[in-house]
Each structure stands twice: as structure tokens, then as C-alpha cells.
Amino acid sequence: MEKLSITLPAEMVDVINAEIDAGAFASTSEVIRAAMRAWMRQEEEHKERIAAIRARVRESLDDPRPSLSSQEMRAAIDALYEKHR
């Protein structure tokens, strides 16, 4: 492990200390490690969502079906609406 020195706003320090005082964590280091794990998990999930969105966009751009004009699309939506009305 590597020791780091960080500066946090008083509000964050108060939250950390409250968690330790409540017994949720034994030390400041444990709180920071838990926060980093949560952040890293969130970042990984974000990257996965972005990759999925990019893949869907790529699939859409590569779709060989012809594009529809806005008028054709509106007509298709209106027909669908009327059918299920």
C-alpha cells in the first residue's frame, strides 16, 4: 500500500468522522477505500454504458435498411397510432 495525504472540505471530514463514530468503519482509511471502490465501480459501469450506447449507434449507422424521411416517419407513427387506438 501507498500512503497518501489528501485535503478535504470540513463537510466531508465531518461525514467521515460520523461514519467512524457510528461504528460503520474503523478508520478514515477504511472510509476512503470504500469510497474509492464505489467510485471505481461507478466509473466501470459508466464505461460499460457508454460502450453499449456506442455499439447501438454503430449498429444503427451500419443498418442497411433505407432511411426514412421525416414525413415518412410521421406517416408510419400516425398509422401505428391509428391501428392501436
Rank of each mutant, 00 (worst) to 15 (best):
E2I: 14
E2S: 14
K3W: 10
K3R: 15
L4G: 04
L4W: 09
L4M: 11
S5V: 05
T7N: 13
T7M: 12
L8H: 03
P9L: 00
P9K: 03
P9H: 06
A10H: 04
A10F: 03
E11D: 08
M12E: 14
V13I: 14
V15H: 13
V15R: 15
V15F: 05
V15W: 08
I20F: 03
I20S: 01
D21K: 15
A22P: 03
A24N: 12
F25N: 03
F25E: 00
F25A: 00
S27D: 00
T28V: 09
S29A: 15
E30M: 07
E30W: 03
V31N: 01
R33G: 04
R33H: 06
R33F: 05
A34D: 14
A34T: 09
A34W: 09
A35L: 13
M36W: 10
M36Y: 11
R37T: 10
W39F: 14
R41Y: 00
R41N: 12
Q42P: 00
Q42D: 13
E44Y: 10
E44A: 15
E45R: 15
E45T: 13
E45V: 08
H46T: 15
E48K: 08
E48A: 08
A51T: 04
A51P: 03
A52Y: 05
A52N: 04
R54K: 15
R54T: 02
R54Q: 15
A55Y: 09
R56Y: 05
R56I: 00
E59A: 15
L61A: 11
D62Y: 03
D62I: 05
D62A: 06
D62P: 01
D63I: 04
D63W: 06
S67Y: 09
S70R: 07
S70M: 10
Q71K: 12
E72F: 08
E72H: 07
M73L: 07
I77N: 00
A79G: 14
A79C: 09
A79D: 11
Y81I: 08
Y81P: 00
Y81E: 04
E82C: 07
E82K: 15
K83S: 12
R85P: 01
